[in-house]
Design a protein around this nucleic acid. Structure first.
Lengths: 257, 257
DNA sequence: AATATATTGTGTACAAATGACACAATATTT
DNA sequence: AAATATTGTGTCATTTGTACACAATATATT
């Protein structure tokens, strides 16, 4: 039994699952001015890494399946995941030497047949605060880690493509929606927020102008000055004003420069 | 045999199809300053309308399936359809009185079982020039028509939701990508283009400013003055400069006001 | 044929946003 | 106490947005 009390056997039981359909989760974190992706290492001799993914129960909404799968495979419980694309190319599981390992894992019998199917997978993403999350590998995985986006290892199947698509999705979204509430700690400085934007947009922004632009959105609460710090003036700490943030999310805004 | 030479029987043969997975196409046109959606009427006593949709062959990419399905069901051949969302709620085929009709259509046997499955459907969309397209109903449909978005009839299953999601997708996209190349005739006036933008954005735009803003994008070729016309100065005709248009598509741009 | 009418293409002028840079204020280190 | 790094805010030239104006012109009306 896993955390949610679902029997392991049921997780791969073709009788309980929607055939040929899976979900994969791109969980994006931010640490040391870098975007990071949560990946799992298979129980195999060679390094085989993959996104946390899984299957859909016959009596389960697709969106709910993504939430459950993430929870089962990483221990991370999120109330919502954002669907960004469905990957349905015939060859999405070929062209990968590592995929051969899968066959030895599930060489014969029902489970083998299950894994040998053609799968169409729907990608879901979420931005999370690395500090607040404590991912744990599930029974089918040896390790779990936050891999920096810039040095992501080779992932199984088309998972590297899936990650790229997710990042492009976010990079596009940041142009008209405020981002960060789930990626940063409760309280943060404008410099932190700027670093996040710079990581996503992959370009330097002007400090003064960024600060003004963000504050004009009027979705922040200003707190006390930061006490501990470097040899310099202490910056203010901010937090998101959830109500105002939600309201702005609905409207969207333009972001240039 | 249909246009492409695929046997009807194969189209519903569970042995040939990916189970539980479908595609639905939202084909958006523009006419008389209105957005229109292409819908099919089932061969049934009551008015049952639906999006052109269908199933995926086991040896077929998801994107290719959408293109083929659209061609089979409407005769419209497009080289590319844009995927916008996958709909996987358990109840997406319930809660609709009309859905009962489906059961009488396919009451028993293999085909009935096929249709009674739970389906997850992936939505694809395209913008097309109504003048240039001549949709024809397929063998399973009685009629096909362009229905104005504002007075769209009740569609089967969750197809009204699917249309709404597609329109929201486009409405969002118009903020940073130029739109219209596939929706308007080869040559058009700035007034035509403005009408299209106003239909999508659901608001009036300033004529002079719109014209300047569009022309500054530098993706148009200006042609001669329009000869036939109303009792007024003849406007210039424009066409999209495909190369420049494609280049701008890659970059994107901001659109406010 | 002259005049009226509707619409186009472009002009103008003010407001707002952007972008590049400056500088005093200040928390810590030396 | 001075040096240093960073913050918060200021300035200003440039660009973009917005509202409205007006002459030009193609057809309709008289």
């Amino acid at each position: 039994m896993n955390q949610k009390g679902i029997q392991k056997s049921k997780l791969f039981d073709p009788a309980e699952l929607v055939p040929g359909q899976s979900v994969d989760c791109v969980i994006i974190g931010f640490e040391n001015k870098e975007l990071k992706i949560l990946i799992l290492k298979w129980r195999a001799k060679r390094d085989i890494w993959a996104l946390p993914g899984g299957f859909i129960f016959k009596e389960e909404d697709l969106d709910k399946a993504a939430i459950r799968v993430l929870q089962e495979r990483t221990g991370i419980k999120l109330p919502f995941l954002e669907q960004f694309k469905t990957f349905g190319n015939l060859d999405r599981r070929d062209g990968d030497i590592l995929a051969k390992h899968m066959q030895f894992l599930a060489a014969k019998g029902k489970v083998a047949d299950w894994f040998k199917q053609r799968f169409i997978t729907t990608g879901y993403l979420s931005l999370v605060d690395i500090q607040k999350s404590d991912p744990q590998p599930d029974f089918s995985s040896e390790k779990i880690k936050w891999a920096s986006l810039d040095e992501l290892p080779h992932l199984i199947f088309d998972h590297n493509d899936i990650v790229k698509t997710a990042i492009d999705f976010i990079r596009n979204q940041i142009n008209y929606l405020p981002i960060g509430i789930t990626l940063l700690p409760e309280k943060f400085t404008m410099k932190d927020l700027q670093g996040l934007y710079e990581s996503i947009l992959r370009k330097k922004l002007d400090r003064g102008n960024f600060q003004r632009k963000m504050l004009k959105l009027d979705i922040f609460n200003r707190h006390d000055k930061q006490l501990e710090g470097g040899a310099h003036k202490a910056p203010y700490l901010y937090s998101f004003d959830k109500e105002k943030y939600e309201k702005l999310l609905e409207q969207g805004y333009g972001f240039n420069s």
